[in-house]
Design a protein around this nucleic acid. Structure first.
Lengths: 254, 254
DNA sequence: TAGTGGTCTAGACCACCAC
DNA sequence: TGGTGGTCTAGACCACTAC
């Protein structure tokens, strides 16, 4: 066992992280219980202590465990949060995880010259064109999210003609579109969050179930690839309370 | 130089992190420029490479730099975000950073037996009491945030009598109250975020500038100490757009 | 005092990129 | 091929907690 087969596609630390997470969710380490000491895990997995520490530190980042110097590492009693607003997850997956049947509807897809705001958001030159897509996501066939995406032409012009790009569903699986087709890994989004009422936003009427004063959570964001270049500008509108977003707020500074 | 004086209150990695951040904000390393290679930093600071890597990894977490294997580490072009919704910062500080004069107004402070919701939030037993405080924060004397806090008695009963606890301003400086007075470090909050309209929330009328249909960003959250125990339950109400919250949304999973 | 987590070192090898 | 970041090891010492 533990032969040195060069199957190191995934780092040792990540593999151990996966195993520990699995043990936690499966109740091998119940909430509140003590995780094996680092030296013991070191022997069990036959790796160095720093490799163990890397894995456990990631658990700690996610607040799945907390460490106490001189005492030990304990499994958190709080469950992993479900709808993390501060993580980027594809909506159909999110809707599914919330127990609804996900659906998707493309309202429009067009290639156009970016206006000033989009130019700035996406760091483009005047006259540059973008793909604009308007979508609605449904849960149990009820429309619950309205999204407008702007994607610069340079992101996909090597692999898609403009005509192909505006075919319905091209960007339905968002992450796949960017990562597999365009070879652009989405690193993170910088987002602004605010509350609005339906009356003040420009959304399709089908989204409005409860009148013009329905509260709407609005998220405007820019997505960046691994080398700091914006590759998508989005606006998301979440009317009502279909999904309550959760998140972990950490300490500012340090 | 670099004598081994035992002034290691702060880890070497953190000290180096501070220095690097300072250099970035001061323009020593301008946006888009290349950070010195790790081996060069290793020599400059006279530490091991892994210490350097720890510091640079934290820069990368904050998206202040991005690393490219085989190429180098580059300073991000995006500025550090200002109003991070996913970090916990005291409101007066936040208001000040946004260029307004911060103010504070305590509406009420009382000790009472926790209701069922609060009991569950704070993991208390029936009959346990809590300190309930209602506050308003102002910017340039305009009320902009309404907050209700519930703090279990056990958090401060060793250092404050109930009579002292309800004196105005006791918890004004929130972090100081918990960390210095109560010796309870706030580790993180688990929050839910949603949009509402003024009409549907129970907030003081002074907060309402623009009628009952004013959109309000509502944050309900529970704060935990370092050993996974809830020490505060809060509701925050942010009407209008006084402050636009920003945040970084990272990739879900891995 | 024994055991825990926190920090740091010196060195090694690898994968990747530009030349 | 040389330089970069990515990973991992073995070992050391420290600070803290519980006993």
């Amino acid at each position: 066992m533990n032969e040195k087969i060069p199957v190191r596609q995934v780092s040792l630390a990540d593999q151990i992280l996966e195993i520990l997470i699995e043990r936690i969710v499966n109740g091998v380490y119940p909430p509140g219980s003590k995780l094996s000491p680092e030296n013991q895990l070191r022997e069990e997995f036959n790796v160095s202590r720093s490799t163990i520490r890397t894995a456990v530190s990631r658990l700690e980042d996610r607040k799945l465990v907390h460490r106490q110097r001189g005492v030990g590492t304990y499994i958190s009693r709080q469950p992993n949060i479900s709808n993390p607003l501060n993580e980027f997850i594809e909506f159909p997956l999110l809707i599914k995880e919330n127990g609804y049947k996900p659906g998707y509807q493309e309202l429009s897809a067009e290639i156009l010259v970016a206006d000033e705001e989009i130019l700035e958001n996406l760091q483009l030159e005047p006259g540059d064109r973008v793909l604009k897509i308007r979508k609605i996501f449904t849960a149990n066939d009820d429309p619950i999210i309205y999204v407008i995406n702007h994607i610069p032409l340079w992101v996909f012009e090597d692999i898609l003609t403009p005509e192909e790009a505006i075919q319905p569903g091209t960007t339905e699986r968002f992450i796949e579109f960017f990562e597999v087709k365009c070879n652009q890994r989405i690193s993170h989004f910088i987002s602004t969050v605010k509350a609005e009422i339906f009356e003040n936003i420009d959304a399709p009427p089908s989204l409005m179930n409860d009148g013009p004063y329905t509260p709407v959570l609005v998220i405007n964001e820019i997505g960046y690839n691994g080398i700091d270049k914006p590759i998508v500008s989005s606006s998301e509108f979440h009317p009502d309370d279909w999904m309550t977003f959760k998140m972990m707020r950490r300490r500012g500074k340090v």
